[in-house]
Amino acid sequence: MNRRKALAGIVAIVGGSVAVNYVYRNSKNERINSLHDEKLLIGELAETIIPRTDTPGAKDVNAADTIILLLEDCADRKTQNNFIRGLEKVKSCSKSLYNKSFFNCSQKERELLLVMIESEEKPLNGFMGKIKNKFFGESFITTLKEYSANAYCTSMKGASEGLQYIMIPGKRIACITREKNGKSWATQ
């Protein structure tokens, strides 16, 4: 099958899903409220991604609150639903893999679980990836990492302790020597 035909096939398949989605588009996503009940789990997931080390971690900046707000207000409905399904998947995977809840897993077990989901959901590169995202929304792990990073790096503690932040630099030095393992600027 040549590339053109393959694309036509994809468009036909997602065309169907667009029609179904359209019916629901103008109503609020009822399922989104369930995110608030999952705040603890979202907090633990964010901490797994950005753990406390010698600098604050995701829980120290209440990342879960920001992640939920971004999901509610900024994410499109498909991305929201992918995220809600992703949370269920985390729960079922921790049961099937470790026979315990995600809360009772060690940091190592949690990381392994998320890496497994990441490799499974690994986005397609290039044009095909863009088409897929447009019609199906962002994957759970992509959103989780994006919003965890956003919540952390734009928080006061994350920006000023996890990274470097100066509201008013006052001057520019075009080239400076960076200390070994020196932090990144929080804003560009």
Binding site: T48, I49, E111, L114
Partner: peptide, 11 residues
């Protein structure tokens, strides 16, 4: 994910 990811993210 985890501390390696955090290092890449913050440097």
């Amino acid at each position: 994910v985890g501390s390696n990811f955090k290092d890449k993210l913050t440097q």
